[in-house]
Design a protein around this nucleic acid. Sequence first.
DNA 1: GCCGTTTTCGGCCCGACTGTTTTCAGTCG
Length: 544
Amino acid sequence: MANEEIARIFYEIADLLDLEGVRFKPEAYRRAARTLEQFPSEVRSLKDPSAVRALPGIGEALSSKIEEYRSTGKVLYLERLREKWPPGLLEIMRLEGVGPKTTRRFHEELAIRDLADLKAALEAGKLDHLPGFKARKVELLRQALSHRPPGGASRSGGRLPLPEAQRIADELLASFRATKAPVDRVVYAGSLRRRREDVGDLDLLATTRGDPRAVMEAFCHLPPVREVRLSGETKTTVILDGGLQVDLRVVAPEAFGAAWVYFTGSKDHNIRLRTLAQQKGMKMNEYGLTRGEGRTDSPTEEAVYGALGLPFIPPELREDQGEFEAAAAGRLPRVVQPGDLKGELHIHVPASFGPEDLDPWVREARDLQLRFLGFVFRPEDLSASSTRLGEIRQRLPGRKGGVRILLALETSLSTGEKGLPDDPPDLWFVRPGGARKGGTTAPGPGASGRWPDVQVHPEEGPFPPGSPKDRLALELAVGPREVYLPPGARALAEGGALFLLSARPRLPEELRRLSLVAGVGARHWVCGDQVLNAREDPVGRRPA
DNA sequence: GCCGTTTTCGGCCCGACTGTTTTCAGTCG
């Protein structure tokens, strides 16, 4: 994917500029790289130079480098930087606790060019003579070198898919709350709260009126904690058994709002907020907003945004990718929230599904205050067991325990609407699987004149060009292991597309994942009124 | 290199923790 490649190039340039000791530019390159990574599906925009120029953090120089890469496949500026610095230095710089300054000293004072050189120098005791390098630092370096997995993957490598990160966070929070630690409140923040598709580490925030050290102590002794990286009065970093890093910050309750904003990020969003505070003659940090000597308490996030003259910005939008501009213009979208979702429509069940199988689903749905459930069948499964949709319809109630029971048929583009005319389902899904190359099988109305309702399983591949997306809802799902996004989700959402938000549950308790799906939808600027399963009646004819 | 309800030039977020230091530099988020 072209923009991810360009992002990697910008990151490398940033690292090399750090090595050179250049100020400000590295952050400019990284910010641009983050922008490019943010919405990797929107490759289209890169083909239009003026659109690229309009992206946050990308100006004249960087847009022309993107153009250069597009036309020549390389960036001369990077090539020149690479000539000046041995490639192995970047590996050294990625070691835990080793930054550009230290790397450069290794290179200039000890002629170290790569990790092998560094190891040899360490063995030979050459580092012991380096000023500022005593036994402890040498030991930390030794550990950093051995922490590296043999394969060479750096610590930045392992990011967890969102649903897995959420599971780990839930368990960790539960066991933390179960301790005797004197905490008022514990929440998660960071990219998990922003509902990024993948999460690199967990960020937790706790408030206490008691001794923060006691809180840290309890946290460090939680069962899954393998190692304590650092621990101070307000901040502790640990590594869990699976290798996941977790940061805990502890603040007083009066600072909770400011701290949650700060710790939720993103970095770029925070920088923007703090700059805004500066412009208003204030200073903002994780403890609150100050003006001169006066301190404003910030018990809630709303208070923080309010003091800056902003409406509350939902965490999913905090990327400095247009949310400030939208807020200033009074056009911050009312993005979908968990409570908006009134049902789940994408539940695959076997053709033998019967009334007794329904009960646990209905119980869970009632718990979650859902109004409808949609069970999905595939024509090939039905024909394999010689079952007609009409039979299933007859043996299942149309409503149970106040929950409406809907039936959906899922065909692939190649099977078309087989099975539709006789037994019209409540909803008709199409998935791209089996789409013929050449795009002749774009979904359209079947013989009955009926159009499919939803385009599902975006992970199976793109729909042929010319797909009438405007007539179809697009599925955006969070499965047990992964997030499934239609390409260009945000652009589609801003263009007014309709979405189906699904947890793709295979067990009733997985319906709880709907709140996560809502968050991912929000992150892509999907509004409540654009969501099929946020409607009272997801079957009724859509407004034109 | 980017960017502008103080600016098209001159700024660029802010603090915690650690190790090696008598006041701070480097790294990290």
